[in-house]
């Protein structure tokens, strides 16, 4: 599904490359934690997947598509295959839960009928069917992140990228979000999640890719954050 082949990313005005000869393969349906300290290259890796940045060397392939060679015109269609969740939720404050979740369908031109059919099911999946007409400001952080997840998942993407989705949440709420991500993963959606959250990583026991100064220093099935497993 995702292949990084000898990928190096060198930002201008930066002495060290953000990614240094990274090789990584992620299969369809996998759940991968991307761990490492700030500046280790996690975000750069996600940005390359979204074609927000271009690799300096090497190729990034998603679903058989060489991301670097993707025409600008085709980027929107490419992004529709992915859902994205951010640490700061990025909800639209003036729109209700329903409209926020529907936003992902509105902007790609889905009909009102499709939206009315799809959104209640997605809100039920994230457990917010009762709060469809609330505004984000009336929700807790965990609930807001659920809305963001609903929006990311609404078009049934094959790949879900999550950048520190539990970074602003307390541990109990984070567990709820992780359960939700696990459920989404079981529908066949590949999940790549960048995180610092030791407790979560240890609890989930999924594949761990650990990065340090632009290199992958550990790639382990069912790993734990602090242990190398050896």
């Amino acid at each position: 599904m995702i292949v990084f082949d000898h990928v190096t990313k060198q930002y201008k005005n930066s002495p060290q490359p953000a990614l240094n000869d990274v090789n990584l393969t992620i299969e369809q349906g996998e759940f991968v934690f991307l761990v490492g300290s700030s500046g280790s290259g996690k975000s750069s890796l996600l940005r390359l997947l979204l074609k927000e940045e271009k690799a300096t060397e090497g190729t990034v392939t998603v679903d058989g598509i060489n991301v670097a060679k993707l025409r600008n015109r085709k980027v929107p269609a490419f992004r529709r295959q992915m859902g994205i969740v951010f640490q700061d939720f990025r909800l639209l404050p003036g729109k209700s839960v329903f409209d926020n979740a529907a936003f992902g369908m509105e902007v790609i031109g889905k009909s009102r009928k499709e939206i009315r059919n799809r959104i209640p099911a997605v809100l039920e999946l994230v457990g917010l069917e009762e709060k469809a007409h609330r505004l984000p400001s009336e929700l807790s952080g965990g609930e807001q992140q659920r809305v963001a997840l609903a929006r990311a998942f609404v078009n049934q993407p094959r790949l879900l990228l999550a950048d520190e989705p539990t970074g602003n949440l307390d541990p109990a709420t984070s567990v709820g979000i992780m359960k939700l991500l696990d459920r989404i993963n079981r529908t066949g959606t590949t999940i790549v999640m960048a995180t610092h959250d030791v407790a979560i990583v240890d609890q989930m026991r999924k594949r761990i890719v650990q990065m340090e100064s632009g290199r992958i220093v550990r790639d382990q099935e069912r790993g734990m954050y602090g242990h190398t497993g050896n």
Partner: peptide, 11 residues
């Protein structure tokens, strides 16, 4: 958000 969910540049 629009970019992230794959809205076209035009839209």
């Amino acid at each position: 958000i629009m970019r992230a969910v794959g809205a076209s540049n035009m839209s």
